[in-house]
Design a protein around this nucleic acid. Structure first.
Length: 438
RNA sequence: GCCCCGGUAGUGUAGUGGCCUAUCAUCCAAGCCUGUCGAGUUUGGGACUCGGGUCCGAAUCCCGACCGGGGCGCCA
């Protein structure tokens, strides 16, 4: 007999024999009757045992520790005394895999646990319905993203995660021994996806881990995160690139709002689709807006965390919007981004933008400098040796189209969308400065 | 890297030098109750991170170690 999932059973199946497997969420032992609640990823069902009729089965339910895996075969019985309108009257209950007691973490206890405790026991934490849902949302978001990008002609690629050079300096690179040579974990597919523009792959995207050895210990940083990278050729300006970042965001939200209603209901959130196009706010306007909400940022200064948050508040109160671009970043602030194209008519400004969601950066990108002489000059400003970037530079010598792209923080999007206080909740097994296990 | 803060049963907490034989909830165990569904009810169980110090006396004060949380810088 094949297993049936809890969501596949209904009151209409009254009388039918079924086999279910799941975790014993709780058992209630009353005078002459016992209830066992069996849970799988889809929900719960109640198994009801009358002690007089089945003393042996009542004993098994009573003896099984919470969270043990039970296999129950029995008959579906229509009942108006249960929330789902039916229950299972078992003819067999097997404790297939017993759970030790006490549990390191309760799945349905009426006390919360600290994130650290939860992460230390992540496999149990993930049994919680509201925790598991986060990853369903993430999965749906990536599904919608792939569908959208493919529908507008992008192909999905995979670039190396072990590399000899990083895109931005060495401070944030994880060093590793590569057959006696020094290599690094990729902090970004930046150089490779640009290289692919030279190869003629005019629209590519990649969804892959990126590694940052930043000593950033915050609720929005991870040492390993999922980077959604896009790169595209023959663009007129960074506006073309922004449209795609906007499209991914919008289509993901639309997919969730329209195709995943039960999931969103379970998450307790409602998605209000953002207006298109997303508001474009220039860097200098952003400072004024942030300052109007109490930030104290001088012109030319970086917005900083405080400024970003204040800007989010300002945009919300002025226009009731939560997704917006910050454009025209000053060259002074993007100096380290040697591949960023500066505006031809005003070299003090770059073509770079951020996409912020409720006061937090989730996307960063822009048009790249594809003209070799300018690129080399910008590398020189950063004291970077082009020799070290061999394969990257070579591609610019043999026909490189105008192009641009961005990096999109998948966990950051999920975090903001679901209003999670810590980004670690948006990744199964977070890696941060202190955590390498599990 | 810098700045703040914390570590008490399995989980989450109360506790600011003697009233601590350490609070409450959850949890666990046993009992009662034929329909629970945050079940109810009775009884019971379980903890001061480690090392040093101050003091008549330390969960409480000091030092160190280890572990963790938040903020900033930076970024996705």
């Amino acid at each position: 007999m094949r297993y049936i999932r809890t969501n596949e059973i209904s009151a209409e199946m009254d009388g039918k024999e079924v086999k279910i497997g799941g975790w014993l969420q709780e058992s209630r032992n009353l005078g002459g009757i016992s209830f066992g609640i069996i849970r799988d990823r889809y929900g719960t069902v109640q198994v009801t045992v009358r002690k007089k009729e089945s003393p042996d089965l009542a004993k098994i339910i009573g003896e099984a520790n919470r969270e043990s895996v039970l296999i129950v075969t029995g008959r579906v019985s229509k009942s108006d005394k249960t929330p789902r309108g039916f229950e299972i009257i078992p003819n067999s209950i097997v404790i297939d895999s017993s759970a030790q007691s006490p549990l390191p973490l309760g799945v349905v206890d009426r006390v919360s646990a600290e994130l650290d405790t939860r992460l230390n026991n992540r496999f149990i934490d993930l049994r919680k319905e509201n925790v598991e849902r986060i990853f369903e949302v993430k999965s749906e978001m990536l599904f919608a993203t792939r569908s959208y990008l493919r529908s507008i002609g992008f192909i999905e690629v995979q670039t190396p995660k072990i590399a000899a050079v990083g895109a931005e300096g060495g401070a944030t690179l994880f060093k590793l021994d590569y057959f006696g040579k020094t290599a690094y974990l990729a902090q970004s597919p930046q150089l490779y996806k640009q290289n692919l523009m030279g190869a003629g792959f005019d629209k590519v995207f990649e969804i892959a881990p990126a590694f940052r050895a930043e000593a950033s210990d915050t609720v929005r940083h991870l040492a390993e995160f999922t980077s959604l990278d896009v790169e595209m050729s023959f663009i007129e300006s960074s506006e073309d690139v922004m449209d795609v970042a906007q499209g991914i965001t919008f289509e993901s939200m639309k997919h969730l709002a329209e195709k995943c209603k039960p999931l969103l209901e379970k998450c307790g959130i409602e998605i209000e689709l953002p207006k298109l196009p997303f508001r474009r706010i220039s860097y200098s306007e952003a400072i004024e807006l942030a300052n109007s909400e109490g930030a104290k940022i001088r012109s030319g200064e970086d917005l900083g965390t405080e400024g970003e948050k204040a800007l989010g508040t300002a945009v919300k109160s002025n226009w009731n919007e939560e997704l917006y671009f910050i454009t025209d970043f000053p060259t002074e602030l993007k100096k380290a981004t040697f591949y960023a194209m500066r505006k031809d008519d005003n070299p003090e400004l770059t073509t770079y933008f951020d996409l912020d969601f409720r006061g937090q950066e989730i996307v960063s990108g822009g048009q790249r400098e594809h003209r070799l002489d300018k690129l080399l000059a910008q590398m020189k400003e950063n004291n970077l040796d082009p020799e070290r970037f061999g394969f990257y530079i070579e591609a610019f010598k043999y026909g490189m189209p105008p192009h641009g792209g961005f990096g999109y923080g998948v966990e950051r999007f999920v975090q903001k969308l679901l209003d999670l206080t810590n980004i670690r909740e948006a990744i199964l097994y977070p890696r941060d400065r202190l955590r390498l296990m599990p």
